[in-house]
Design a protein around this nucleic acid. Structure first.
Lengths: 129, 129
DNA sequence: CAGCATCCCAGGCGATACTG
DNA sequence: CAGTATCGCCTGGGATGCTG
């Protein structure tokens, strides 16, 4: 944690560190976490191996780490089936689903406004060449 | 960029890398960017030095870098007043304000549901000690 | 199959010093 | 005042190898 005890300039930092929205961003700002929420939201419960193959590019370290974090935060459930080869399924909790709903709004905003952002970038880059 | 040209497993990665919502998360997932949006949203146009003092803990490197990024993305305008000591004001564009609106929903969700998340964490930590 | 442990490197970020 | 430039640390995260 960067803010330990008595912060020197507490004006906005106090707000930042303790603010729920800040902590939420810590969660969904994570690349894999947000992808996992979407994946699990779209396709229901998924096995570890399914997640691994569907979310291309994720290392198993990050996959496990992200899933643990989400489990800890109550966003997913982890169901272990002790069959011959072990089977583990991950599923969004209702809390996770409500978060998915919020993220859909993000997605919506993005789809509507990202073209403007892209345009702004092009303009900016053209000017500063 | 992690995905350069031909990705090996394009299933979800293609979606991820090119998806507008993914790119939006790249933006608002940034700690300082999100803080800056909120700060500028709450308190109107702010000078560089005001931002620097109000958002405690930010280095001027990150402050400048974040502001540049936001300017490039069309989220803020940068107004230079060539007075004796230079004066620079940053202000949310309408695009930036619409993003602020979306982030308010995040904030709302967070305020409502973060207690559940905290509770889940406590339970999880208690179980795995 | 579903992980955990270890090693290791790139680059993100803070600290510091300098400029128009 | 509002930055840019440089350096160096430190950690996030990929790669690899091992286990129940």
């Amino acid at each position: 944690m960067e803010v330990s005890a008595q912060q020197p300039k507490p004006q906005f930092n106090a707000f930042a560190a303790s603010c729920p929205s800040r902590r939420l961003l810590d969660t969904i700002g994570d690349k894999w976490v947000s992808l996992l929420i979407v994946a699990l939201g779209l396709r229901g419960p998924l096995r570890y191996s399914e997640l691994s193959s569907q979310i291309a590019g994720v290392s198993q370290k990050m996959l496990t780490q992200s899933l643990r974090r989400m489990e800890r935060d109550g966003l997913v459930t982890r169901t272990l089936t002790p069959s011959v080869p072990v089977r583990v399924d991950y599923e969004l909790t209702s809390l996770g689903q409500s978060l998915l709903a919020v993220m859909s709004h993000l997605k919506e905003w993005a789809e509507v406004h990202m073209p403007q952002v892209e345009a702004a970038r092009a303009t900016y880059d053209a000017a500063n060449r």
